[in-house]
């Protein structure tokens, strides 16, 4: 920023000030240049601000307002203020409660599993293997694919009688598994697929973290006669602390926003065991046209995510200190 500022000033005051000019005038001119600079700044900011305003701030404000109304899509002009009714029902709605616990379950399993898988992959790839680039690309490629496409592919793979996974299981003598149609397995199947899809991205971040750990620490550990495990626990892990915390927070929030996988793979079933909070909100708003209630749930959802984030930030600070 500073260098840019200087350059601009240099343009405004070409070469040298004219002789005999009063210092007062100079200051005046300096101010207007500053203002002009500020204006330029806002000009460049404006696309971002306008887009944010239209697509983020306005909808958020609208959702907050609608959450206190009985906005029903079929009667958009006939909406009245109903106070906290929507919010009261949120906590009595058995589907919301089920969706909440489904989402918590998903998050609690996905976060540690995905974190460790990503770390494991990063450690594997960080060695000087022969086909390193190939593996790195292979592990990262699911991230590049659209989640919708991945979900459809995995739906085929999970198919009980014709799916790839069941055919492989059959080869080793395990009977057909109803992956997506059994209330006990459906969520776990979605978790497995989500970890596979997401871990590659965190792997890349871990990889960057690994390469940031100075090599002399390992050399020093070697001189002290540390075993590979000791090096991992006492050098690698502490070196990755900040990276891990960042990944921890982002995975948690992303996991809480689970939507595409149940929408495509199970439609929230069987028996609502894979219905996530966001999917429930989507259904209430679009399938059942109850925008007021959906908005109220969205507000509650935002608060939940906010609380989780704040708690995590406090934890992060403590660990740093």
């Amino acid at each position: 920023m500073d260098s840019l500022k200087k350059q601009e000033e240099a343009e405004v005051y070409p070469k040298e000030p004219k002789p005999g000019r009063k210092p007062k005038q100079q200051r005046k001119k300096g101010l207007s240049a500053k203002r002009r600079e500020a204006l330029t700044g806002y000009f460049f900011l404006s696309p971002a601000i306008i887009l944010l305003g239209i697509f983020l701030l306005y909808p958020m404000g609208a959702a907050f307002y609608y959450s206190f109304t009985d906005f029903y899509i079929l009667t958009p002009d006939d909406r009245s203020f109903i106070g906290l009714d929507n919010f009261m029902f949120v906590f009595q709605d058995p589907e919301f409660i089920q969706a909440f616990w489904n989402t918590v379950y998903f998050t609690v399993i996905v976060v540690p599993v995905q974190l460790s898988v990503a770390l494991g992959l990063a450690l594997l790839i960080n060695r000087k293997l022969k086909f390193r680039v190939f593996f790195r690309t292979a592990f990262f490629s699911p991230v590049v694919m659209s989640l919708v496409v991945v979900s459809i592919l995995w739906t085929f793979m999970y198919n009980p009688s014709e799916g790839l996974i069941n055919e492989m299981l059959a080869m080793i003598g395990i009977p057909e598994q109803p992956f997506l149609t059994s209330p006990d397995q459906a969520m776990n199947s979605i978790i497995a697929m989500s970890v596979w899809q997401g871990a590659g991205f965190q792997m890349m971040i871990f990889l960057a973290g690994l390469q940031n750990i100075p090599n002399h620490l390992y050399e020093a550990a070697d001189i002290d006669g540390a075993s590979p495990w000791q090096k991992f626990v006492h050098v690698t892990l502490p070196g990755l602390r900040n990276v891990s915390l960042f990944i921890f927070i982002t995975i948690t929030i992303a996991a809480f926003k689970l939507l595409v996988q149940p929408m495509i793979m199970t439609q929230g079933g069987p028996l609502g065991t894979t219905k996530s909070l966001v999917y429930h909100i989507y259904e209430a708003g679009f399938a059942y046209r109850d925008v007021g209630y959906a908005s109220a749930m969205a507000v509650v959802f935002t608060v939940i995510v906010l609380v989780i984030t704040i708690v995590q930030r406090i934890l992060v600070k403590e660990e740093r200190g």
Partner: peptide, 8 residues
């Protein structure tokens, strides 16, 4: 077992 709950 007459009907499959997840047929192809």
């Amino acid at each position: 077992g007459v009907v499959s709950e997840s047929p192809p």
